[in-house]
């Protein structure tokens, strides 16, 4: 227990309470995600479905409703959790590594690249149907990250170089996306692309969770392993190096990891904004700046936030599903403003 002490300004109980509250919130949010939607499912039906699927029981449930709960809503909730947690820890890592409070997962040009990849597949039918939109997005994301990495490496050392290269990369790939959309997309394609650009959990099924969950667990473990190194970045790269951190290696490792996590999320649910920027800041108010606790707390908070945003996106307009990115921004921005306002005078 003492292992975590002294690395943060709040006592360990702060993290304990936060994790407990987060777990309860996550459970409740998942319950809502299973029950609410266009078709309302009773708690009994949901429980029977879970019992049947998880423990191989044979309780009587309407097979259509069982299908909705298990194949549609639970897989969707799991992917939402993974996506929220992944984006949040990417935000934590980038804010620490680049020493910039505005850093967020899309800073490295990843979402811009993913959009270009997806649009190429949707509009130009690149890959002649053999390539899915997700695969196109993943390829575009990694290509954009490679471009940004090469550019920042060529421009020399330093966090600000990475940020500038990221902005250049994002602008370039966003321009390419707009060019393709305006020059050759039909109205219907444009609508589909818009939805994808703002994020959508609509088509998500279990295989997506099978990709998102292992990638998240891998990312979470590596980030926790590097949490102390991230603490050392508080006073900059030279300070971190003089505290025994192999700066070049840690930076390459973690930038690569955030690229992988973000590319994975974007390829499944599209570019959901705001989570990676806001959740780490909000979590910091509760658990303090030490990265071990911040990474755990942010992952949990991101998961809860995303599941709730998904539930709301299904409920706000009856008969319609809003893009999830709209919900994360609509609810995230005011919540963040309140936190920001309440924290005034703390510094």
């Amino acid at each position: 227990m003492r292992g975590l002490r002294r690395t943060g300004s709040t006592p360990l109980s702060g993290l304990g309470h936060f994790l407990l509250a987060g777990s309860v919130a996550l459970t409740l949010a998942t319950c809502c995600a299973l029950l609410f939607g266009e078709i309302t499912v009773t708690p009994r039906e949901a429980l029977c479905t879970l019992a049947n699927q998880l423990f191989g029981l044979d309780l009587p449930v309407d097979p259509i409703r069982e299908g909705i709960v298990w194949h549609y809503r639970l897989s969707r909730a799991v992917v939402a959790m993974c996506a929220g947690a992944s984006l949040a820890i990417c935000g934590v890592v980038l804010q620490a590594l680049l020493r910039n409070p505005l850093a967020e997962p899309y800073l490295l040009g990843i979402s811009a690249g993913a959009s270009t990849g997806a649009v190429l597949v949707i509009v130009l039918a690149l890959g002649a149907g053999a390539v899915t939109v997700s695969a196109g997005a993943m390829a575009g994301a990694l290509l954009a990250f490679g471009f940004v990495a090469a550019l920042s490496f060529g421009a020399g050392r330093g966090a600000e170089r990475v940020i500038l290269a990221g902005i250049a990369g994002s602008q370039l790939f966003n321009a390419a996306t707009s060019f393709i959309v305006t020059s050759s997309a039909s109205a219907e394609q444009t609508r589909g692309i818009m939805f994808w650009l703002l994020g959508s959990l609509g088509g998500v099924r279990w295989p997506d969770a099978g990709l998102a969950l292992p990638v998240l667990l891998l990312g979470l473990s590596l980030c926790l392993y590097r949490a102390r190194a991230l603490d050392a970045f508080a006073f900059g790269e030279d300070a971190a190096a003089s505290l025994g951190v192999d700066v070049g290696r840690v930076r390459a490792e973690l930038l690569g990891l955030t690229a992988l996590l973000t590319a994975c999320v974007v390829s499944i649910v599209g570019a959901v904004g705001f989570v990676g920027l806001v959740v780490p800041h909000a979590t910091r108010f509760f658990v303090g700046p030490a990265h071990g606790r911040l990474i755990l707390g942010s992952a949990l908070a991101g998961a809860v936030f995303m599941v709730l945003a998904d539930v709301l996106s299904r409920l706000v307009l009856p008969g319609q599903v809003l893009p999830i990115g709209v919900m994360t921004a609509l609810f995230g921005a005011p919540a963040f403003a309140v936190l920001l306002w309440r924290s005034r005078g703390r510094q």
Partner: peptide
């Protein structure tokens, strides 16, 4: 030495 991280002196 500068930082934006909200740390105590002991941290």
């Amino acid at each position: 030495a500068t930082t934006d991280v909200a740390m105590t002196a002991r941290d």
